[in-house]
Simulated scan of single mutants.
Amino acid sequence: MNLINFHPPSWYANYKPPKNVQLVGDHHIEKGSIVILGGAGGVGKSLAITSLAVAGATGGEWFGLKVHKQFKTMVLQAENQNTRLKNEYENYDISELDDWIKISEPPECGFSFNSPQFLASLKSESEKFGPDLVVLDPWNHIAASDDMQSHIKALGEIASVWPTGEKNPAVLIVAHRRKPSPDRDPDGSDLMHEISGSHKITTIARCVFALVKIPNTSLVKVHCCKNNNGATGDLGFWEYVDGYYLPRCHTATQRGKNEDMLQAIKDILVEPMKQPDLVRGLEVATGKSQSTCYAALKKHEAYLEKIGNEVRLKGSKQ
Rank of each mutant, 00 (worst) to 15 (best):
M1T: 09
N2Q: 11
L3H: 05
P9S: 07
S10G: 03
P18F: 08
P18T: 06
V21D: 15
Q22W: 05
H27K: 14
I29E: 01
I29F: 01
I29G: 00
K31H: 02
I34A: 09
G38N: 09
G41R: 08
K45R: 13
K45H: 07
S51H: 12
L52I: 04
A53E: 00
A53N: 01
A55Y: 01
A57P: 02
T58R: 06
G60I: 05
E61T: 10
E61G: 00
W62T: 03
L65T: 04
H68F: 10
M74H: 06
Q77I: 11
Q77A: 08
A78H: 11
E79A: 10
N80E: 15
T83N: 10
N87T: 10
N87Y: 14
D98V: 13
I103G: 02
G110P: 05
N114R: 11
P116L: 04
P116S: 11
S124E: 15
K128E: 14
K128L: 11
F129Y: 07
F129M: 06
P131T: 06
D132F: 05
D132T: 03
L133N: 03
W139K: 01
I142L: 15
A143G: 03
A143D: 05
S145A: 10
D146A: 14
D147N: 12
H151R: 02
H151G: 02
I152N: 08
S160W: 04
S160C: 05
P163A: 09
T164P: 00
E166R: 09
K167H: 14
L172N: 01
I173E: 03
I173V: 15
V174L: 03
A175F: 00
A175P: 02
S181Q: 07
I195L: 13
I195V: 11
G197A: 07
K200F: 15
I201H: 12
I201W: 06
T203W: 12
T203A: 12
I204S: 00
I204G: 00
L211I: 03
I214D: 10
P215H: 04
T217P: 00
V222C: 12
H223P: 02
N229Q: 12
G230L: 08
A231N: 05
G233R: 01
D234P: 06
D234K: 01
G236A: 08
F237K: 02
E239L: 05
E239F: 00
D242M: 13
G243M: 07
C249I: 07
C249L: 07
H250N: 10
Q254R: 09
Q263E: 13
K266V: 15
K266I: 15
P272S: 06
M273L: 14
M273S: 05
P276G: 06
G281Y: 08
E283T: 07
G287N: 09
K288L: 10
K288C: 10
S289A: 10
Q290E: 13
G308F: 05
K314F: 12
S316R: 03
